[in-house]
Design a protein around this nucleic acid. Structure first.
Lengths: 110, 110
DNA sequence: CAACTATATAAACAGATAGTAATGTATCGA
DNA sequence: TCGATACATTACTATCTGTTTATATAGTTG
């Protein structure tokens, strides 16, 4: 039973989905799920360029998916939205279910 | 505790998020949450053009979020992925939480 | 202060995609 | 068979955005 959703709300929801709709940002989030990371550490773990990582982090932070703690020269980021992991798990679960479906179909043929 | 996610899996998850990252498609999905709809009905309810709706429905169907039942001249679509509603609710819930946070901050100032 | 490091930002380019207009395809009724 | 209807598809354009390169900012160390 969905509650009434105005076009403005749908725009905002779509915007939040869009932030997660990028492999690079999911890679960053996935690293951050292992705990707090500096930008340099994220660059190493993801293989992305420093400018690129900073830009993605800015987006993720503006969307409130992550937050930042500055310490001297470093900036440490961490996931601030507990729903991120749930969202990814749901998506991943559906992928698995669909894959299993495909396999079942193929086996039914043979 | 996230399970290990390969870059390929992350690409696929991102792709699925991208399908939901569009206000027009969320509008369509939201209509379909009210039950099965023909393309024409969706055009009326969403205010989008027929070509546009058909295109979005094609995408949603390829991503297995919706499925189609053809009956004579008509094509009836319905949500085939129960997780869609959950995903949207989580996103919507976060929006509300953040809005409440903003309000609390503003009140703390005054 | 000067050199160095970590991060952020700006400009520019390339690739992706939403929307439209036009056309195609299939089904129904006269 | 002809016209009309419902839907799908194609070609095209405009817009958006991810990436890179270069530069700016700010903290640290000598």
């Amino acid at each position: 039973m969905p509650r009434p959703l105005s076009p403005e709300i749908l725009d905002q929801i779509a915007g939040r989905f869009r932030v997660l709709a990028e492999p690079a940002r999911l890679r960053i989030l996935y690293s951050l799920m292992g705990g707090e990371r500096s930008v340099t550490e994220l660059v190493e773990e993801t293989g992305l360029s420093q400018a690129n990582v900073s830009k993605h982090l800015g987006l993720l932070r503006r969307a409130r998916f992550v937050d930042r703690r500055k310490e001297g020269l470093y900036a440490f980021y961490h996931v601030s939205d507990p729903s991120v992991e749930t969202l990814c798990e749901i998506m991943c679960g559906r992928l698995e279910a669909q894959l299993a479906e495909q396999v079942a179909l193929l086996e039914a043929v043979s």
